[in-house]
Amino acid sequence: MKIDQLTPRQIVNALDKYIIGQDKAKKMVAIALRNRWRRQQVKEDLREEIIPNNIILIGPTGVGKTEISRRLAKLSNAPFVKVEASKFTEVGYVGRDVESIIRDLLEISVQMVREEKTIAVEGKAHDHAIERMLDTLLPPITAKPKPVGEMGEEDKLELSHQRTREKLRAQLLEGKLDDRPVEIDVPADSTPMMQIFSPMGIEEMGLNIQEMFGGMMPKK
């Protein structure tokens, strides 16, 4: 279900499946969501001028304020962050922290896009993985084998090698080898236990330093 095709009424209906009552609030967020889509369709020079109509939801706790927003984001496949405004009144607060909201939002956005792309290339990645597995199990003899048809007497070894490879491939694809052990090298997933403590407000720098070190550590 893509948001592009959802009218405000359909958005409300979709929200109705999870949230009871609060029709007014649902209606307003549905309009806000549709407005964003409308904005995207507007001519470019005017598009920049259109600012979103931000919303204040007023009501006691536990009536669905957060739930409405969360469902809305899910529905529209939009990056979503929730922040407690009161956390900014805590001791140790520095002005710049407010911007961290946006950083979190972007982090989530990157994650979302990456996941989508991963799914998009899954089939291809699987093919590549099979090839690599075959290379691991049965390293090729020559760097560039000739096509099977052109092989002469002297390529007999190569030919049987190719056949074995095909056989293995079939077994691999059928999952027959799933339980067989195989040894491969895996790069260490994360930076080895290292925490960079940074003063508040320059958390961005802390992140970058951590990444830098991550790159320096040789991948096993």
Partner: peptide, 14 residues
């Protein structure tokens, strides 16, 4: 991701 965050990001300020 940047484009998506800019154009369709939602921030919920509780």
């Amino acid at each position: 991701a940047v484009a998506r965050a800019q154009n369709s990001g939602i921030v919920f300020l509780d």
